[in-house]
Simulated assay, not measured.
Amino acid sequence: MHADPHDAPRHPQPTRRSQLWRWSLALLAGLSLSLAVLYLIALQLPSPPVPAPPLAHIPPAQPAQAAAPLAAPTRPSQTSTASARQTDFNDHNYVPRPADNIISSREIRQSSAYRQITQARAPTQQTVQQQSVTHETAWVRQWSGHARYLAEWAVHNNRVDYASVCTNHRRGSIDYRECRKAVKQHFKRICQQSRERYAQSADAEALAREQRYCSAANGFSPMG
């Protein structure tokens, strides 16, 4: 049994217009894709360097003109007279001016101010005497007993240093206190002996001894 070809189902055939539309869409899509790829490639490429603007032409600096030489200091010539003044100065007729207010060393030494300074600096005889220090020792007898103490003291400018009396003993001890009491009596005896000796001989040594021990007999205090 054979089928009749006229009885088979018919499929619609594409028209020419629809095929043209499909080709147009495919071409547009391919063109869009190509443009997108080119754009992405262009973003990855480095940008070309921008050329720097040309520098302005600067003319070379002109050499500075040499400064004019300074004129030499001018001083009035000693040979000029009161009636005519010198107006032309050069290296040949220049005469330096002598220094003003110059005092010789001889005039300085002869001035009263220099003499006063020299006399103040020179040590006098009294200053030398004040710098002399002597030390004396003596065995002194106890003022209220028969014991004896070795006493030491210093003399400055023929005056007994009261603070140095009996410093060979421990300060504040019994021997120290008893020694200073005995020295007080010793100064009184030596003062009396020195007065009698000076009255007989009237020499300078006796006078100095009397002044030293009589002042100590009156001014020294054992409790000081």
Rank of each mutant, 00 (worst) to 15 (best):
M1K: 11
D4F: 08
P5C: 06
H6G: 14
P12F: 05
Q13S: 12
Q19N: 09
Q19W: 12
L20F: 13
W21C: 11
R22V: 10
L27K: 05
L27D: 04
G30T: 02
L31R: 00
S32Y: 01
S34G: 05
L35A: 09
L38H: 04
I41P: 06
L43S: 13
S47F: 05
P48F: 01
P49H: 12
P49M: 06
P53S: 06
P54T: 14
Q65W: 02
P69G: 00
L70N: 04
R75G: 06
P76L: 00
P76Q: 00
S77Y: 01
T79M: 01
S80Y: 04
T81L: 08
T87W: 12
F89G: 11
H92T: 14
N93R: 13
Y94T: 11
D100S: 11
N101W: 03
N101V: 01
N101T: 02
R109E: 13
S112D: 13
Q116E: 13
T118C: 06
A120Y: 03
A120E: 08
A122R: 15
Q129W: 00
W139K: 06
W139G: 02
R141T: 15
Y149I: 08
L150C: 07
V155G: 02
N158A: 12
V160H: 09
V160Y: 10
Y162P: 08
Y162W: 09
A163M: 07
H169F: 10
R170G: 01
D175M: 10
R177S: 12
E178A: 15
A182D: 08
V183F: 04
K184R: 14
K184S: 14
Q185E: 07
Q185L: 04
H186W: 14
I190T: 15
Q192S: 14
R195P: 08
R197A: 15
Q200C: 02
Q200H: 06
Q200P: 01
D203Q: 07
A204D: 11
A204G: 04
A204N: 05
A204W: 08
R209V: 07
E210C: 10
Y213K: 06
S215K: 15
A216F: 14
G219V: 08
G224V: 03
G224Q: 09
